[in-house]
Design a protein around this nucleic acid. Structure first.
Lengths: 196, 196
DNA sequence: CATAAAAGATACTGCTTAGTATTTTTACAA
DNA sequence: TTGTAAAAATACTAAGCAGTATCTTTTATG
């Protein structure tokens, strides 16, 4: 990797951290360049505007992470319901990229940037769509192999599960404790079992 | 009501609207006083700081609204599961205080102000606690009168339902359409029925 | 090694921000 | 009616903001 490319990525990573903790609007470029030890000239060499950087964070940091943390675990050929539960358990309890006190980065971005920035909404929606599609496919697979009842509506379940995830992350943020994750996961397990 | 009191309330109401639409950080005091047609002197007569105003919005605007929209509907003595479903349906589809494109004001505040402002976290947590307590009590009532299975964990269900609500509001914001509310509500109904 | 382009550094601009100091107007009780 | 405190208006400050213009250094390539 070229040095310039490394600088760019380093800016994105540290900027992401700052934004994950403090929000997009409140994270100033001055704050970013102070943290990254990169000058303003360097910053604006790599990004035309702050928003361009924000979009790059979503595309170059969040998207790859979503793939490895949210999507690939579903494609391991486990029993579908187990796969979904294990995914959620891992995301909430073990994943070290995601911190309880800062919530879900995608949900944070969505809440902050939507509806007044169409560009952000678009890429965030793409991100979300990816996840919902894989979740829906996982459930359909379960219907085919008989582990999930045929009358279950896969898209409906996906929406229900995904909403719960976004919501519990926000609640965890409020309580600043993973404690709330446990009863949530227990009920999720019960709910998933009701689809058998 | 005294005139000064009316001014104060008017500032709070219009400021709430602006914040609900644009977020707390991005809503400037200059913007608020331009919208309210109140001068800076008047604003700072009523509120020492911006944060004091923000907290007043939660206490004087959101709290009463929460009581009438989120809590009282549960206390009408309906069948508990119907009461919960009807509440959600009303909140998502009919309530005119809440707009799909702007999400849930409490969730918005939580995401934006937590964890870096303990004061906000505290009052938001109080607000949320109120709702969860009434939801839990409603489910317990159902267990007592036999309409809900005895092995159901009321607190667990409450957390699950509340998370789904917060999440679907965020998703509605992203999609900018109430369409996503319908499959969510359908699955919620199925889920609630599974508690019978 | 020369050179041109890529990458980064520095100093600045114009604007917005929350908050303040000071003055003026309004409401109401004596 | 008048005195006084509540309420509101005006003009300001210092700091922070995104972004720009200009200059210097580094890197790759002939």
């Amino acid at each position: 990797m070229k040095k310039a490319e490394a600088t760019r990525l380093m800016i994105l990573q540290k900027a992401f951290e700052l934004i994950y903790v403090n929000g997009y609007q409140t994270t100033s470029i001055d704050h970013i360049i102070a943290t990254t030890q990169v000058t303003k000239g360097a910053f604006y060499y790599h990004f035309k505007t702050k928003d361009e950087m924000g979009l790059a964070i979503i595309n170059d940091i969040l998207k790859p992470n979503l793939t490895s943390s949210f999507i690939e675990p579903l494609q391991k050929g486990l029993d579908p319901l187990d796969a979904i539960y294990n995914l959620m358990h891992h995301l909430l309890m073990e994943n070290e990229f995601l911190k309880v006190e800062y919530g879900c980065p995608v949900a944070n971005f969505t809440q902050e940037m939507t509806p007044w920035n169409a560009e952000f909404s678009k890429v965030l929606d793409e991100l979300t769509q990816q996840w919902t599609q894989v979740l829906t496919a996982t459930i359909e697979k379960g219907k085919e192999n008989g582990s999930i009842r045929k009358d279950v509506n896969a898209k409906q379940v996906t929406l229900f599960v995904m909403s719960g995830y976004w919501g519990i992350r926000n609640y965890g943020k409020l309580e600043n404790s993973k404690k709330v994750y446990m009863p949530y996961l227990k009920e999720l397990r019960r709910y998933l079992d009701s689809l058998k």
